[in-house]
Design a protein around this nucleic acid. Structure first.
Lengths: 185, 185
DNA sequence: ATGCTGTGTGAGTAATCACTTACTTATGCG
DNA sequence: CGCATAAGTAAGTGATTACTCACACAGCAT
């Protein structure tokens, strides 16, 4: 097969990570094959293994990439706001993030893959970085922080089971107020 | 191979479900093989397929089994309490449940497997049943319910990454003091 | 004892897995 | 041009996957 244009390995790695987001979002670490990712990235599977030495290193880079996107979204959303206003802006931004189902399911697969010690270590580190970034941006106290993240994790679960598209009574009780008051401790 | 004692298919199915809890907890729907489950249950893999026609039906029964255990734990914990007292008792009971790492990781794998529509439907239904049971037992309003489940989901995530065993500053800020012994059970 | 029903298995299937070896070819630089 | 280097692949490796087919045998009723 003839390749139209060659790219630098660095650019190709970025392409692969973008494709990996889409592919791993579907079925997680164990349910996604390196062949799937290679095909989605438009490269051969052997070349995937040159860019990322093992499937696990690829997945771990994906964890860092995914949490990095959340941090970046929070920084952008907050701008020069602070306190309650910053918290509220981050809440809105997280709602937007969850509308990208790939990003959402990927997060769930990160936590689910934590039975693997190496992956768990990276997830812990990245979660801690995110936590500290939210503290820095909002200045919230422990209770406010706990509430912010707790609501976030509940929204993760609701979104993962696509409950808002199959609206029953309990979903109405649980979600709409949440989405609006997401940042209020 | 000679079988020491034969069981009724019904009893054997219960055995298999118990083994499936342990096995699927490790690596979820895609990461666990039917061979793993059969070996853990002490039966041959062909017989597993007689008891459960496909891997997915086994997993779906596991979802119902898992949520059923949480509901049962809540009913037991509440006894004849009600209101705030009932809510508090259920919170304690959920903490005990999370000390069983298999139960915890299984829950995370349920949500992660929701990209599959058939599984998602069962998870939604079971989550709804649990929600209504907590309403029934506590009589809490929407805000109270949301807070209860939000904290629960945050504790799930914290426990899945085993954060309490790798205590850093943010974990202490996030988790109620009583939960800090979670990793030592 | 015979035969029937239900519990259980040995030995397969084709497909797919993560990963490798050995190879080709595009591109920038002298 | 000539050639080193880096981008890229075809064709495998042995192991494992979900699932099946044909068969064995335990226990019970007659």
């Amino acid at each position: 097969m003839v390749t139209a244009t060659r790219m630098t390995a660095e650019d190709r790695r970025a392409d692969v990570l973008r494709a990996a987001v889409r592919e791993f979002a579907k079925a997680g670490y164990y349910g996604t094959s390196t062949e799937d990712v290679a095909r989605a990235a438009g490269i051969s599977q052997p070349y995937l293994f040159r860019l990322f030495p093992t499937k696990k290193t690829l997945f771990i880079e994906l964890v860092q990439h995914g949490f990095g996107r959340v941090r970046a979204a929070f920084v952008t959303a907050v701008g020069d706001l602070s306190g309650e206003d910053a918290m509220h802006a981050m809440g809105e931004a997280y709602g937007d993030l969850l509308r990208d189902r790939d990003q959402l399911m990927l997060q769930m697969h990160f936590y689910a893959a934590c039975e693997d010690a190496e992956i768990a270590e990276v997830v812990r580190r990245e979660f801690g970085r995110l936590w500290r970034e939210v503290v820095r941006l909002s200045g919230a106290d422990d209770d406010g922080m706990q509430h912010f993240f707790a609501i976030g994790m509940l929204m993760n679960v609701i979104a993962s089971m696509d409950a808002t598209s199959h609206s029953s009574e309990w979903v109405k009780a649980c979600v709409p107020p949440a989405w609006l008051t997401l940042g209020e401790a």
